[in-house]
Design a protein around this nucleic acid. Structure first.
Lengths: 209, 209
DNA sequence: TGTACATCAGTGAACGCGCGTTCACTGATGTAC
DNA sequence: TGTACATCAGTGAACGCGCGTTCACTGATGTAC
């Protein structure tokens, strides 16, 4: 006997409305953008009345926080899966960056929600905080291994991580918001551009920052 | 005889409402943030009826575009004034980056307006396009001189500029939106953090990207 | 096994809100004669 | 120099809109007995 009822059709109760609302919000984000993301529209998409979400989220901000947390989980997975394609520490490190840019440019509105200052609860929502810290840790762990494989001091870790994060975060935002186009740099996709840029910061198998 | 009437008090006509509206919008941005920036509130602050702005701007977007254009002019000035404090090409280059971060973190909401995808007319408003291109040119010119002073090929210019831009843009956004704090890196201000980061990408008087 | 009942996830109507924009208007200005 | 008039930057009331949120409610569910 399942603890949680799963999607019984024609039932008065929904089954798993919370997840469905997060999914609806996500769908609106990707199809219509951030401006179109309202609680009412989210409820509409989930086939439920406008008041229903209040049984699962305290307010709109709480829904947004849940969507953002989901985004950070996916970002973590995107970075990890790229990293696992490589074996050399330095290549694994740059792969996390390529994964970051690939995720950002594939889900622009979600990325904007995660980093655009829209979610006010960043630090107060524990799930969201955890998810975002996890994502950062992927990058930082990869940086740690890269540094140690080059015999460099662990004292460099914070700045090396911050520099890498700035590079990929900045590139992502510039592609999304400042009309930077991979085509202007002789490549087709944003991940190729990220790989190209990160490659320039590596000289003779050595990390330059 | 002045072509344009300047601020006659108690006059029915305002004198220079267009500039006053841009200034009001700017003030709202800095004090209350982007969410509080409405056409009505802007008119209120300028001491004028809610319909008055329509004699100077086609719609809200046009006002936003004007504010953003002003922002790019100030960003250009901020980068230039930093650069002019230095004489060595490489130092002048990194100085533009420090100026960029200083501007971004001093005027967070304005910076968000300039780069947050809020202004839809980025490419269609010629003043805005010009202003943003000017800002980019400061950075690119500094990069060109830095490269040439090191005897490197001008072919590297696009990627070097993009890398520098990504670094400073990313750092700015991370400070503003991801709770990155200069204090965690042993410095007090965001410009010190920028200088520290950019310094790490320079090894033995050589640019590493 | 059957029934009473507490629980709680839904409903749908309503609230007040500030917004962007439009409209017919009016007062001030500068200019042609 | 004085006056008629075109121009245009203002006014203030009104429009419709979708929003977040609240409310009393109702139907479905699981459980104690």
């Amino acid at each position: 006997m399942p603890v949680r009822q799963v999607r019984k059709s024609h039932s008065y109760h929904h089954g798993d409305l919370r997840d469905a609302l997060v999914a609806s919000a996500r769908a609106i984000l990707e199809r219509e953008g951030l401006d179109a993301l309202s609680l009412r529209e989210t409820a509409r998409r989930a086939g439920v009345s406008q008041a229903a979400p209040y049984h699962h989220f305290a307010d709109k901000q709480a829904l947004l926080a849940a969507v953002a947390a989901k985004g950070f989980e996916e970002l973590t997975a995107a970075m990890q899966s790229r990293m696992e394609l490589e074996s050399v520490p330095l290549a694994r490190f740059t792969a996390t960056g390529v994964g970051y840019v690939a995720f950002a440019t594939r889900y622009p509105a979600l990325f904007a929600l995660m980093f655009g200052g829209i979610v006010e609860k960043l630090s107060s929502d524990p799930d969201l905080l955890t998810a975002s810290v996890c994502a950062y840790n992927v990058l930082q762990d990869a940086a740690r291994h890269a540094l140690s494989s080059e015999g460099r001091s662990e004292a460099d870790l914070p700045m090396t991580s911050l520099t890498a994060w700035s590079l990929v975060h900045g590139l992502s935002k510039l592609i999304l918001e400042a009309e930077v186009s991979p085509a202007n740099y002789g490549v087709k996709t944003s991940e190729e551009l990220a790989a190209l840029m990160l490659g320039k910061t590596v000289a003779g198998d050595k990390l330059t920052y």
